[in-house]
């Protein structure tokens, strides 16, 4: 089952297209890294998935064919906005109470457990918590809903390294134990690299890459060779990006074998992501998509 399916998905704000003609097929059980430069459409895509926005055109379904925001998936999808929207005038314990009332499925035990682990004072108003504590509280509220699909828009941005590691650990525990599917948007690619099993790169409102990390790693190589030959390399293999340092050139190419005269080494997900981000015009990996 595909947990996310999009066909020609487009979203326009007045005259500006935030997303255009996006096709996606994300299988169940993945940790999806959603990356892209500012204004690429990451937040718009997540808000469409959460049901907060309605597509201008195209199709978007979740969990095997249901509209985002519909009753069928409402209990199964949780979303954490990048601004950590909370009821700032309420105490943490009252926010938990409200969240319990607002949801048909709610795990009070895990909520209490996480609050205690992250040392979030229950009697303090949310608005008086630090930025990091607010992020952790918002994350707690999302996890305690026990969703099947969790959408997180830059959730770690305001966390210190230790809290970031703890939060990521908690999320990975949910993925492992509950079969949670996770979509994580972040600018910190190295952070995503450790956990992501599926990569989506957005650029200028279009999907540039959408494939499993394994298939991307298997189909891309870093090629090292003479800078003078870099121009001809593109005639032999699909080159994503080339950087030159003195007489040597380093190219990211979509190939499984280096052409003659070029040395090869495996690439990391970060290198692939950065390579595509540097070349927004570099396209598509249609052959690498995991079939629905």
């Amino acid at each position: 089952m595909n947990i996310i399916e999009a066909d020609q998905l487009s979203k326009r704000y007045r005259r500006t297209w935030a997303l255009r003609d996006c096709d996606l097929r994300v299988p169940d059980g993945h940790v999806v890294a959603l990356i892209g430069p500012n204004g690429a459409g990451k937040t718009t895509l997540l808000r469409l998935l959460a049901g907060l926005l309605v597509p201008t055109a195209g199709q978007l379904t979740l969990l095997g064919g249901y509209q985002p925001g519909s009753g069928a998936v409402r209990d199964d999808v949780a979303y954490l906005d990048q601004h950590y929207p909370l009821y700032r005038d309420l105490q943490v314990r009252h926010i938990l109470r409200v969240a319990a009332e607002m949801n048909n499925r709610w795990d009070q035990d895990i909520a209490e457990e996480l609050l205690a682990a992250w040392r979030i004072p229950r009697k303090r108003k949310a608005g008086r918590l630090s930025g990091g504590q607010q992020a952790l509280l918002a994350l707690t509220l999302a996890i305690a809903r026990r969703p099947r699909l969790l959408l997180l828009d830059e959730p770690m941005a305001s966390l210190d390294p230790v809290a970031r590691q703890d939060a990521m650990g908690t999320l990975m525990t949910s993925v492992a134990e509950d079969g949670l599917s996770l979509v994580l948007s972040s600018h910190v690619i190295s952070e995503l690299e450790r956990v992501a099993s599926y990569l989506i790169v957005l650029s200028g409102g279009r999907v540039q890459v959408a494939a499993t990390v394994d298939s991307l790693l298997a189909s891309h190589l870093a090629l090292i060779g003479p800078a003078s030959e870099a121009g001809r390399l593109a005639e032999q293999v699909p080159v994503i990006t080339v950087s030159r340092a003195g007489r040597q050139a380093l190219a990211l190419a979509r190939t499984t074998a280096a052409p003659a005269g070029w040395a090869e080494r495996p690439v990391t997900m970060e290198e692939i992501a950065l390579g595509y981000l540097r070349e927004p015009a570099a396209q598509a990996l249609s052959g690498l998509e995991v079939p629905a």
Binding site: G51, R74, D75, Y79, P85, L86, R88, M102, A138
Partner: peptide, 14 residues
């Protein structure tokens, strides 16, 4: 104004 609708509207109650 506070943006909390982005929390409220994605909960179990539509």
């Amino acid at each position: 104004e506070t943006g909390s609708f982005r929390y409220t509207w994605v909960q179990g109650i539509n």
